[in-house]
Design a protein around this nucleic acid. Structure first.
Lengths: 407, 407
DNA sequence: GAAATGTTTGTTGTTTCAACCAACAAATGA
DNA sequence: TCATTTGTTGGTTGAAACAACAAACATTTC
């Protein structure tokens, strides 16, 4: 593992007593989060830290109200009963905002991903500063309403290309934003919040799946595939979001899968999302049913899924065709990136029973080279909207791996 | 940055005094390697480590014969002249072996990538243990001949899928190897060597480019594209090789770029390497020239490049066509992975002047989505054979970031 | 003298070690 | 049945070890 690393800003993080303590603190905090309930003794076994070190750090975590002892008197064999530790709920909250082209979602979320309060606003294209301020004010009301203190940070996700290190939106065509210092705007309207994080929606969703999802796997290597109007993806390696040199890693949607194929809005031909996105499904259905332009505009993916569930063969065919193309792209992702798990999010997973066999058939037909691979393909396990939970996950991760290097 | 990490074997590396010291040692050693010559004071500035800490660690590195003071009496302005530090050459060596389908290359290599001694053996398909033992014996002679001590490790690269964590070859069709514990075989025949590393050739090449290459860039995110009989790639993020869940990350060669295209040996259709590998170039040339099967088998890419240099239009056309397809695949890699640099290795870069404009034209025509990206596409800067230097780089990296956690 | 590089010395903070205390289950015996 | 003993595991305490740090000092050069 690369421990001698440069931070995102080019400095080198050397180890001194404080950093060492904070790293160990983060190790303990995360082992509690991942395996709760867990005793001090088990943590010591797991981390190879001395029992006394674990006790000392756990004491400070309890003082910080981050974890809590859970008295457990159930008989569990020989010896003294362990004192179980858990991440404390109902004490620390984060704000989450997800800016999408049609609507913007807000929420106050607990450390374990429970949504405490949520709201939705129609997204106003135009003056971004004005609209963002409206959202922050709304969020301020929501958090004031519930919990004036222990509000740790605000996470923001945007459907577009984001420079997370600088908390800037590089390009969000659907929102009409370009080179927008969104982090600064948020900080301006919520000056009391120290922790503001901005990230691309699919990337944050991948993080949320890892941090807040209920899949049992604990992979090092996850691709979250967000199928919507377009297709985006987030890649997470070792809890670290892969951002890419131009902040555009995971833009699989514009991967060429049909040379000289149909033209895409991006200017290229044969892009994956032309064949596999929700828009493609709707277009395919509308073409077959010979719907007018207006009727097409009023057709949602939900309605097609509903029709398919009631036996509409045209709807079924539109969905399975998209599923096949999704499988084709996934085969490419597996070949190039070889993740342990691919997680799919988006409206289309409501038709999982219908699409999963089609996806798998295509993936298998595309022939795993040499040895069989065991990449799992799963629908998201998140109970809420992945990009919204992703926004929360950004802050939650910071709390859980905060090194507090400040003197 | 993910500092609270699990190692490849699932343990968690917690920080104690020894680990902290070793991390700081590695930070200092690497800052010397990357910026030599450099003074203690500069290292202190750069790493934020105290001057006394730097002095102490530097002293032990000098005692270990890893670095050396370079007296510099040239006047450089006000104040005491710094004592420059450099990585010591001519003291520590590593062995490198590259197993390819036709030939196996051996070398003894210095810490800075200088090849001290090298040899080549025709690869014997058949009993792997026997052939490997032959190679190790040959390497033992080579290292005995030069430097009996300070031989730090052996790095091995293989054209195939490798489980680096277990130093096993999973599948190497061209060598006829499958589920071979190559690391163990090497250790059996060279028991005195503590450090044996096995890795895929393209992945190790990427590492070599980062560690031993002369490109000025210091990216976090590199893709090394190895164009040969097939196409393989190595992805490196933060000095860490991306291995993938099934050790097959970077198998871009079998990415579908033409749906329903020509059949590939892997069973799929329209794979990239069917259109862009050396074999594709030769086939294209042979088809146009209407060569017999025997003539085709005797045509090498070198000869086609030679003909093109002398103005043969058919040869030129075969190469530019491949270059266009290389560009097409690169566009997909940029879209999906968004590296800062793509480095190309292989015989075809001998025709760089001819292929580079074609690659770039295709990459640009394929339309960067939204903002212009600035992914650099460069030929390898390595002076030797990348997979062979890659084998050396595996050991060299271990020496430079050895934490020595053992008590 | 000023400014920069590098060294020495004592201080601080953190982990570790070893011993200890606490809680519990099972075995023992009256 | 119930108190006692024994072994095991969970967690705490205080001294020792160790690495980084700060500050003063020495050295070199302008």
């Amino acid at each position: 593992m690369p421990l001698t690393k440069k931070t995102r800003h080019g400095n080198i993080l050397s180890i001194n007593a404080k950093v060492a303590r904070n790293i160990n603190r983060a190790i303990i905090l995360n082992s509690i989060r991942e395996r709760q309930p867990i005793s001090r003794a088990k943590i010591s076994d797991l981390t190879k830290l001395n029992k006394s070190t674990v006790s000392s750090i756990v004491a400070s975590l309890i003082a910080e109200d981050l974890i809590i002892e859970e008295p457990d008197h159930s008989p569990r064999g020989i010896g003294r009963s362990p004192i179980n530790l858990r991440v404390k709920r109902g004490k620390h909250y984060v704000g989450a905002i997800y800016f999408d082209s049609s609507k913007t979602e807000l929420a106050v979320i607990d450390m374990d991903g429970t949504i405490i309060s949520s709201a939705e606003i129609k997204t106003e294209i135009g003056n971004p500063s004005e609209f963002v301020s409206l959202c922050i004010k709304k969020l301020n009301v929501m958090r004031g309403q519930f919990h004036p203190h222990h509000f740790r940070g605000i996470g923001v996700t945007v459907a577009g290309i984001v420079d997370a290190a600088q908390s800037k939106v590089v390009y969000a065509p659907n929102l009409g934003w370009q080179d927008l210092d969104l982090g600064q705007v948020v900080r301006d309207y919520a000056p009391a919040i120290e922790m503001v994080t901005v990230e691309n929606d699919a990337k944050a969703s991948a993080l949320a799946e890892l941090l807040l999802g209920t899949h049992k796997v604990n992979p090092t290597n996850v691709v979250f595939l967000s199928v919507g109007a377009g297709i985006g993806a987030g890649i997470v390696v070792d809890n670290h979001i892969l951002s890419g040199g131009s902040h555009a890693a995971g833009e699989f949607g514009h991967m060429t899968i049909v040379e000289g194929g149909e033209r895409c809005t991006c200017g290229n031909q044969g892009c994956w999302e032309v064949y596999a996105s929700d828009r493609a499904t709707i277009r395919r259905y509308a073409a077959e049913k010979k719907l007018s332009q207006e009727q097409t505009a009023n057709t949602s993916l939900e309605s097609i899924i509903g029709l398919a569930a009631h036996g509409d063969d045209v709807a079924k065919e539109a969905l399975t065709k998209s599923a096949q193309y999704i499988g084709l792209g996934i085969a490419n992702i597996i070949r190039s990136f070889d993740p342990e798990v691919i997680i799919i999010g988006g409206t289309i997973i409501q038709a999982w029973e219908l699409i999963y066999p089609e996806i798998m058939e295509t993936v298998n037909k595309r022939g795993f080279f040499g040895k069989q691979r065991n990449t799992a393909i799963l629908p998201t396990s998140l109970t809420g909207n992945p990009p919204l939970l992703g926004a929360a996950a950004l802050s939650i991760r910071k709390i859980f791996t905060d090194y507090r290097i400040a003197l």
